[in-house]
Design a binder for these strands. Structure first.
Length: 929
RNA sequence: GGGCGGAUAGCUCAGCCGGUUAGAGCGCCUGCCUUACAAGCAGGAUGUCGGGGGUUCGAGUCCCUCUCUGCCCA
């Protein structure tokens, strides 16, 4: 019945078993609650990885943090829902499939839209779950029954609904604007998807002759190829050099059109020649000038950024080829005045690395500064207020500043993409009258002219539009106030409690969720029918922004650098629990994590330590059973707050420590201090439970004699503390603790009280008896033991040989030492204790504030080493005394510092003084060097 | 150019609302195969808290400034 645990911890033997178990048994599935008001929800949305993605360290950190919090809250009785899903990732996925086609010698244009998207779906079916499969190995306690894909019917329906509503509210509009055009992808991309890069380039000075032949003006430009689209030349109104030319017409070289010279502040006199060409269709600033002066916009490039100008000799040329040709032509025409080196900042597409072409094109936009037609504040106003008013809190707090900064400068959001893969915009263009019919279903006839020839919009929505809706769409939001009010999932789980994510998607995703969440949910009534306020419309109440995982040299991981650490590979070598603990132990808000494998090695050793503690326990439980003891273990009830009268010191102590650690962990986790929480548990488990408690219980467990109370009591305490410690640790190391927890119950011969440790109660400070006196006494004994061990070492006493000691101390400490002679014998190999009324100094002694102790061992100490040690000690003490005296002699300090600080310092000063005397005496007693 | 961080032991990082002589892990040195664990046990060494100035009875902690360094936005 009792399976022996293997001698060494081997994660590969247990992790797969439990991750399968958790999924198969649906341990973390949360049904829709009947009574939303009766639960304490802890709801989080997993930042959905792209279907094209592979798990990286960032995911692992993110999921480790989310999982620790989820498991912790779940164990404290919350209804913990963690919703997983994947994102269709428009551009990334389409690129992935297109690349596949290229390998087959085909291209997207060989397919119809339908057959292409069918192919993407097929790809998704086959490869799309790679990342969620990897996730299962991390032990993430997500609710798989709620898993979604952003293009599921359910979510697509909601996306369509959201779009139509925004359109009806007048917040979505269509228009020709300058957008960031990626000529490789053939689509517009948002500002966020554009990076800027400095590159060496040229500034071309080109002469534009006046139409009347009376002279010319020289313009400076970095992009001569766009001159075919020029519709003006601008000079600064204050620029004396050109004032007389304003209003005159120019003859545009290479095009032969006439364009005006106008005055506009945008032209900076000190840049280039002070005269700039204006190309409204190919430059955002020029576009603005064009608007101010009602200039025509002349688009001269196609979707691949080739010159598109019928009849022009440059027609069909790539933009950079066109530049070369045009510069050459200008030169031969004598119009190229100068070419100067110039560093220019180029917009680069994040996806493809292509140089973005600002391009005038028809796009769909979401208005962020405008109130909806049916009343209410603008999207940006609500999103700003939600954070400003504290309904959403950022950790680290600093990120709220970043958020405001962005929100204050936000522009209307270009939500259309010229792709095939994504949510198609629900709009139909009337062939007859060009009316745009936005509708939930394909309309039969145009609403304006009744025409029946309707063509659906070909654009799809930006991926972030649909993911921005997730906090409510995953809970089946419909947009219909009555239906939404009656929706039990929405009632129970919205707003979600927390979002854990990286700063890289703060604007892409976090901000969009706040924008869309506040906007839509303000319109959804509360479950009781009352009007929803902003504080309950927010998509989440807390945002925790985690750090970046870097390599051991603090370098950002990147494919090109080749320093990417694959979490699966590390997990395979060290086990998931050890990797999770590594990340947790370094996860402190606002600090990047340098991932050192040596640390993971250390935490695997920790896991092994726990494993062996379990083996020790199992061994003793076996013996106990053979000896006829019955051990009862029943979750946290096994630990009694009332310890029996005869409970030995170390047991009173360990329960006190357990209580304190539970407190520390709770406080740390509430503040996202994963590092503090994990270090407190580590310290407790290894430094206190294993190093001290397990050694001490060996004194109490006695199976050679008939049944005795002390053994029984100790066994119960030992098992109870261990069981509690496993629960304490389980959010951090779910696999190991699950395995050992079940094994522990098996050893006791009783069924586990829950199918999983994850469903038990999290240890709380008040679950354990705290005993201040026991902690103090134990600390004194620890000090004494450490002092004796050190002395033994100094004097060269062999490890195995027991040695007597002499102790000088106050009555209480002396009595404590006498009462615990066994402890001293066991842990410091003390063979006998002799009390001394006189203070002890000289070779072979050590002193603390509480006692002097001497090891009675014949061999002479190494006088030189001892002198060195004492000298160091003396220096340390003097430093302390100096600092203390400086303050104590300071009248200001005595007068102004709080009494307990002054008193504490005095006491310490007195103690240090005594220690110094002893050290001096010891030094003097040494034979001369 | 604007904004936000960081600099503490050899390395990676903690150090709260200022309060007594600054901590952890890894690494390093020494001794131990003490039957739970050598992935272990025990003992030990290591810091002008980036420089300078200020506030304060008191500064690693608050303020100013400089140096170095990282990130975000334009």
């Amino acid at each position: 019945m009792n399976q022996k645990l293997p001698k060494a911890y081997d994660p590969s033997l247990i992790e797969e078993k439990w991750s399968n178990f958790w999924v198969k048994e649906r341990i973390f599935s949360v049904p829709t609650p009947r009574d939303a008001a009766g639960i304490r929800p802890f709801v989080q949305l997993l930042p959905p990885p792209n279907v094209t993605g592979r798990l990286h360290m960032g995911h692992m950190l993110n999921q480790t943090e989310m999982d620790i919090l989820t498991r912790w809250h779940r164990m404290t009785g919350a209804t913990a829902v963690w919703v997983p899903g994947t994102d269709h990732a428009g551009i990334a996925t389409q690129m992935m499939v297109e690349r596949q086609l290229v390998a087959e010698g085909k291209s997207r244009t060989d397919f119809t839209r339908q057959t292409f998207t069918d192919r993407v779906w097929a790809w998704k079916q086959q490869y799309g779950s790679a990342i969620t499969d990897q996730m299962r190995r991390l032990g993430a306690s997500v609710d798989w029954s709620r898993e979604y894909f952003t293009m599921d019917d359910r979510l697509s329906h909601a996306v369509k609904e959201a779009f139509v509503r925004l359109w009806e509210q007048g917040l979505i509009y269509r228009g020709a604007y300058i957008v960031n055009w990626d000529p490789v992808l053939g689509t517009a991309v948002s500002d966020l998807e554009v990076e800027s890069e400095e590159r060496a380039g040229h500034l071309y000075h080109i002469r534009y002759p006046l139409a009347d032949g009376s002279g010319s003006i020289v313009v400076a430009t970095t992009r001569p190829e766009t001159m075919l689209g020029d519709t003006a030349v601008a000079v600064n109104p204050a620029d004396e050099r050109y004032r007389h030319l304003v209003g005159k017409m120019l003859l545009l070289p290479l095009a032969g059109r006439q364009i005006p010279i106008l005055a506009d502040d945008w032209a900076q006199p000190e840049f280039g020649t002070g005269a700039v060409k204006v190309t409204p269709a190919h430059d955002p600033n020029d576009f603005a000038i064009g608007q101010r002066h009602q200039l025509p916009s002349l688009s001269i490039m196609d979707q691949q950024a080739r010159i598109e100008l019928e009849g022009s000799p440059y027609h069909g040329l790539d933009r950079f080829e066109a530049r070369r040709r045009m510069v050459a032509d200008l030169e031969s025409a004598g119009l190229l005045v100068a070419v100067k080196d110039h560093t220019l900042t180029l917009p680069i597409s994040q996806r493809t690395g292509a140089i973005i072409e600002p391009r005038l094109s028809m796009q769909w936009f979401l208005a962020v500064h405008q109130g909806p037609k049916d009343g209410g504040d603008s999207i940006a106003a609500n999103a700003t207020a939600a954070v400003r008013q504290g309904h959403i809190q950022f950790t680290p707090e600093m990120y709220s500043k970043v958020y405001f900064e962005w929100m204050n400068n936000i522009h209307d959001w270009c939500i259309s993409r010229q792709l095939w893969w994504g949510h198609r915009i629900p709009a139909w263009h009337c062939a007859a009258c060009s009316e745009i019919n936005v509708a939930r279903q394909a309309p039969a006839a145009c609403r304006r002219c009744g025409g029946t020839e309707l063509v659906q919009e070909t654009d799809v929505l930006d991926t972030w539009f649909s993911s921005g809706l997730l906090p409510f769409t995953v809970f089946n939001w419909t947009g219909d106030p009555d239906a939404d009010r009656a929706n039990p999932d929405l009632a129970a789980f919205y707003p979600t409690q927390l979002l854990v994510t990286g700063f890289d998607i703060l604007f892409f995703w976090v901000a969009r969720m706040i924008m869309l969440g506040c906007h839509f949910m303000l319109q959804a009534p509360n479950p009781d029918g009352s009007r929803r306020e902003l504080k309950d419309a927010v998509p989440f109440r807390q945002v925790y922004i985690h750090a970046l995982v870097r390599d051991a040299d603090r370098q950002k991981m990147s494919k090109t650098k080749g320093n990417v650490i694959d979490p699966i590979e590390i997990i395979t070598r060290y086990g998931t629990d050890a990797v999770r603990f590594t990340l947790a132990s370094q996860a402190s808000p606002g600090t990047d994590i340098a991932f050192h494998e040596s640390r993971t090695e250390g935490y695997r050793a920790f896991a092994n330590k726990i494993w062996n503690a379990a083996r020790f326990l199992q061994m003793n439980l076996d013996r106990a059973q053979q000896a006829g003891y019955r051990i009862s273990l029943c979750g946290h009830d096994s630990v009694s707050l009332e310890l029996p009268q005869n409970t030995p010191l170390e047991t009173r102590w360990i329960f006190s420590r357990l209580s304190a650690v539970a407190e520390t962990v709770a406080r740390a986790l509430a503040a996202y201090r994963f590092d503090e929480a994990s270090s407190a548990i580590y310290q407790f488990f290894w430094g206190e439970f294993c190093d001290w408690y397990l050694e001490l219980v060996k004194l109490r467990l006695n199976f050679d004699v008939a049944h005795n109370d002390l053994t029984a009591l100790t066994l119960n305490a030992l098992a109870g503390v261990f069981e509690s410690a496993l629960r304490l640790l389980s959010p951090f190391m779910p696999f190991l603790t699950e395995e050992l927890w079940h094994a522990l119950y098996a050893s006791v011969g009783s069924p586990s009280p829950a199918v999983s440790i994850a469903l038990t109660r999290y240890p709380q400070a008040e679950d354990f008896a705290a005993d201040e006196a026991a902690v103090r006494e134990m600390n004194t004994l620890q000090e004494l033991i450490v002092a004796v061990r050190a002395l033994r070492k100094d004097m060269g006493a062999p490890e195995k040989e027991a040695v007597p000691i002499r102790l000088h101390a106050g009555a209480a400490v002396a009595a404590l030492a006498q009462a615990n002679a066994e402890m001293l014998a066991r842990l410091a190999r003390v063979s006998g204790l002799e009390l001394s009324t006189a203070a002890l100094t000289g070779a072979g002694t050590r002193s603390t504030a509480a006692f002097d102790v001497a090891v009675l061992y014949e061999r002479q100490v190494d006088a030189a080493a001892e002198r060195e040690r004492l000298t160091r000690e003396l220096a340390r003490l003097n430093k302390g005394l100096e600092a203390a005296e400086k303050q104590l002699n300071n009248q200001g300090f005595i007068a102004r510092a709080p009494a307990h600080i002054v008193e504490g310092l005095r006491k310490q000063h007195a103690e240090t003084l005594a220690l110094r005397q002893k050290a001096e005496a010891a030094l003097a007693a040494l034979p001369p060097a």
